[in-house]
Design a protein around this nucleic acid. Structure first.
Length: 819
DNA sequence: AGCACGCCGACT
DNA sequence: GTCGGCGTGCTC
């Protein structure tokens, strides 16, 4: 045995670095960088790891373990991915295991769901097996596969892993790596008249004659003809056809005789309504010009920012560009904000490029994820479309990465480590693969705009809408004035009301925007002023009228709405603030005839809620749609000429340095939903402060002015893009310990920073979530400092802090470039 | 992250 | 008398 070789293995743990395992001679023969392996860890655990590297440096400080099994014949993680993961771990101050865990589909991580199978079923030296080994052996003789979990049940004691290890060593069992193969991708069968006889009367009559003695088949065929004539271009599922009075075997026989054709078609609700829509038109002169400019910029720069107003036809430009990249033999990654992934853009691209487009979606189940991973690995796609997680698929030879709606905050991962910014990582991945990155937006983020203006990125503007339709006319409505003059019903000014009436009269659909869900964010007692708060978080509960509940939007806590004030018993409970649900009620009151629907997370629960709503909207089964920011993402409908904003104020008064930037982007994007296809659209924005600079700039579409105002402030107060921010977020259930720990870390860091650059600790606006107190420390890294050195310093000081028991239990999250 | 080990309170 | 709470320490 040659034990002088070792492998560094990446494990899905929140621990620094890789783990060393020794290799046997037979291991050495099959091992490949990027392969999955099953390895024992601790006394109990079996983890799926990925081979990071192979070397001969025997670790002196601990005893190594061996690899249980190789789970793949070939590598399923590419060298570039490993490099990419390391880059992310380094930049976002987290462990490689954190990245691995997030980047890798969990179905490929077997762990305790791992199965073992027997390879020798007549083992001769049974008497040499110990009790536990024998029990597992017997169990396996009865059933082919058992999971590690089940084995742990059979042998009472928790010695399952060691026992299995012994059996593996004796060559009696092996880990079964083929579990995913049990699942097959779900494909729906469709039926249509065979193309050979469709429109060929002679052939058709011949077939029909031959069916003279098969009445059932004849009937079925005639029925299919009728359906196809009535609803041409609408795919018909075999299962649906069978429901209309025939059987599967009849359809099958017809297919064998060449009368009908059974074909596969990816199932998607939206697909079905959209099948016959829009071919990609030839590019307009303007679009061609932009395309050429992009290519010219790419020859000198790695990244180009395409700043094109809403509805300017960016998608067509992307499509042409992608075509050209693919023609050269390269692949394309097309990133979109989460929610848009289900919408029209994807269908247009699929329509244009067909089967070689892979679409990733966070609602995908594990099997679909694995399938997409494997197909990407096998280079079966020319284009892969998806949200930020799509970055982690095993690409080869990327030529272009597109980040559409580049300014969208959903590119930043905020819930799980690593807290990465997808747009930025797209550029990193792209440069690792010598590809180009195209950022697209109607309202670029200030960082991208600044980088472009500094010459770091190419910058191209597209100022006119497709077909030269004018940008919507945006007007402000002064709510103070409306209130004073009694020109207000509930929260709808009469100007807005009359506009809606006008639109409905013309059979147009109306979109209204209110950036808050629920009915009212606060329920307040009229006599004592008490407001119900969440028992787990430091926020007041939001009133949801539909369910008659008070809900916490942070932890999900819900309780029935009390009839009396819990504090003083008064029945006079008032709502304060304004949510989408309340607007919905008000609208129903003002427009009793209108069909009103709501689009927010509450209304979009359930797998196809979003698709269904889009379908209904498209079919004009909705007159007025009221929604939150969800509306701004990929919502593109021709029959909308008017958009209303109920209250812009909450956007402007956000206590955050990005508030103005976000408000401008959001309002511009919402306005962009109006008048996309024919006439100039109209927009009304209601606000109590119509004189606000941001609102004024929105009405004049003055992006440049807005950005230069904001840049001025950012420079003054050392905010991005003039400094990089690193936020340290401390969480603990004990407030005192939390504050002490945060203060201690600040004390340790202080000598290295200017006082303007080390802020806090300070509790965020919601100081407790899910019974954990929170406090933040903000570090501003100035251009003359090395961000990497600062991060190393932070790592070092956190480690030092952790040597003291009292501080160790406080969780510290490092958020680089927070939102 | 998990999990074992170890030390203190409320239960069959 | 034990079950189980979570504080502490370790994992290749």
């Amino acid at each position: 045995m040659n034990t002088s070789y070792f492998a560094e293995i990446i494990l899905p743990l929140n621990l620094e670095g890789t783990f060393t395992y020794h290799l046997t001679d037979s291991d050495l023969q099959q091992i490949k960088i990027g392969q999955r392996v099953a390895v024992p860890f601790g006394t109990q655990k079996l983890y799926t790891g990925v081979i990071h590297s192979i070397h001969q440096n025997k670790p002196e400080l601990y005893k190594t373990k061996g690899i249980y099994a190789f789970l793949d014949d070939e590598a399923i993680v590419t060298p570039t991915q490993i490099k990419f993961w390391e880059w992310i771990a380094n930049y976002y101050v987290c462990s490689l295991g954190d990245v691995f865990r997030n980047a890798f589909p969990s179905a490929l991580k077997l762990e305790s769901q791992t199965f073992v199978r027997l390879i020798i079923d007549n083992y001769e030296k049974i008497e040499e097996l110990n009790d536990n080994e024998f029990l597992v052996y017997e169990a396996l003789k009865l059933r082919q596969l058992i999971s590690v979990e089940e084995a742990a049940l059979i042998i009472d004691d928790k010695s399952a892993i060691p026992t299995l290890k012994l059996l593996i060593d004796k060559g009696i069992i092996q880990l079964d790596e083929k579990i995913q193969e049990k699942y097959t991708p779900k494909i729906e069968n469709y039926v249509r008249i065979h193309p050979n006889i469709k429109g060929n009367d002679a052939a058709f009559i011949q077939i029909l004659d031959s069916l003279n003695r098969a009445q059932k088949q004849r009937e079925a065929l005639l029925q299919l003809i009728t359906i196809e004539t009535q609803k041409p271009n609408e795919p018909l599922k075999v299962s649906e056809f069978v429901k209309m009075g025939t059987t599967n075997s009849i359809v099958k026989t017809l297919a064998e005789k060449g009368a009908v054709e059974i074909y596969q078609h990816q199932t998607s609700r939206v697909d079905e309504t959209e099948t016959e829509k829009e071919e990609i038109h030839q590019l307009t002169l303007k679009q061609t010009e932009v395309l050429e400019k992009i290519k010219a910029e790419f020859s000198a720069k790695q990244t180009v920012l395409l700043h094109g107003v809403t509805s300017s036809g960016k998608t067509e430009i992307y499509i042409k560009l992608m075509e050209q990249v693919i023609k050269k033999g390269n692949k394309v990654l097309y990133l979109l904000p989460e929610i848009s992934v289900t919408t029209q853009i994807v269908h247009r691209i699929k329509k244009h490029f067909g089967e070689r487009v892979g679409v990733y979606h966070s609602k995908f189940n594990q099997n679909e994820r694995v399938e997409l991973w494997k197909k990407t690995l096998n280079v079966e796609f020319d284009i892969v479309i998806g949200p930020r997680t799509t970055l982690f698929l095993p690409f080869t030879s990327l030529g272009l990465v597109i980040v559409d709606e580049e300014h969208e905050s959903s590119y930043k991962q905020i819930d799980t480590k690593p807290f990465f910014q997808g747009r930025d990582m797209a550029m990193v991945l792209s440069s690792m693969m010598n590809a180009k990155t195209l950022l697209g937006s109607a309202t670029p983020s200030i960082e991208s705009y600044y980088n472009a203006r500094q010459g770091k990125y190419g910058y191209i503007e597209l100022n006119e809408r497709f077909g030269n339709i004018k940008l919507p006319d945006i007007k402000l409505v002064d709510l103070k004035k409306a209130q004073k003059e009694k020109e207000l019903t509930h929260d709808i000014s009469h100007i807005l009301r009359d506009e809606i009436i006008e639109q409905l009269k013309e059979k147009k659909q109306v979109i209204l925007f209110q950036n808050r869900r629920g009915y009212a964010p606060i329920l307040e007692c009229n006599s004592c002023g008490n407001t119900p708060e969440c028992p787990n978080c430091d926020v007041s509960l939001t009133y949801h009228k539909f369910s008659n509940q008070l809900k916490c939007h942070y932890c999900g806590y819900a309780q029935a709405k009390p009839n009396r004030c819990v504090s003083c018993g008064s029945v006079e409970l008032n709502t304060k603030g304004l949510g989408t649900e309340q607007i919905e009620h008000q609208l129903q009151d003002i427009f009793p005839e209108a069909r009103i629907r709501r689009m927010d997370v509450d209304a979009m629960r359930g797998k196809f809620a979003y698709e269904k709503l889009i379908e209904d909207f498209e079919n004009h089964e909705v007159d007025i749609l009221i929604g939150t920011q969800m509306l701004t993402k990929g919502f593109d409908f021709g029959n909308v000429n008017f958009v209303g904003v109920i209250r812009a104020d909450s956007l402007l008064n956000f206590p955050d340095f990005r508030a103005h930037e976000k408000a401008f982007q959001l309002l511009t994007q919402v306005s962009g939903r109006a008048g996309r296809r024919e006439d100039q659209g109209k927009v009304l924005i209601q606000s109590y402060q119509p004189e606000h600079l941001v609102l004024q700039n929105v009405t004049t579409y003055n992006y440049q002015k807005t950005m230069s105002d904001i840049l001025y402030e950012r420079k003054e107060f050392y905010y991005p893009p003039f400094a990089r921010i690193i936020k340290l977020r401390f969480k603990h259930k004990n407030k005192e310990r939390l504050d002490k720990t945060a203060e201690q870390l600040v004390k340790l860091l202080k000598p290295n920073f200017d006082s303007r650059c080390l802020l806090g600790p300070e509790a965020p606006s919601v100081g407790r979530i899910n019974n954990l107190y929170i406090t933040d420390v903000m570090i501003k890294v100035l251009p003359n400092q090395s961000p990497m050195k600062v991060k190393q310093l932070i790592r070092k000081e956190i480690d030092r802090l952790c040597t003291i028991a009292a501080y160790r239990s406080v969780r510290i999250d490092v958020d680089v470039d927070p939102m």
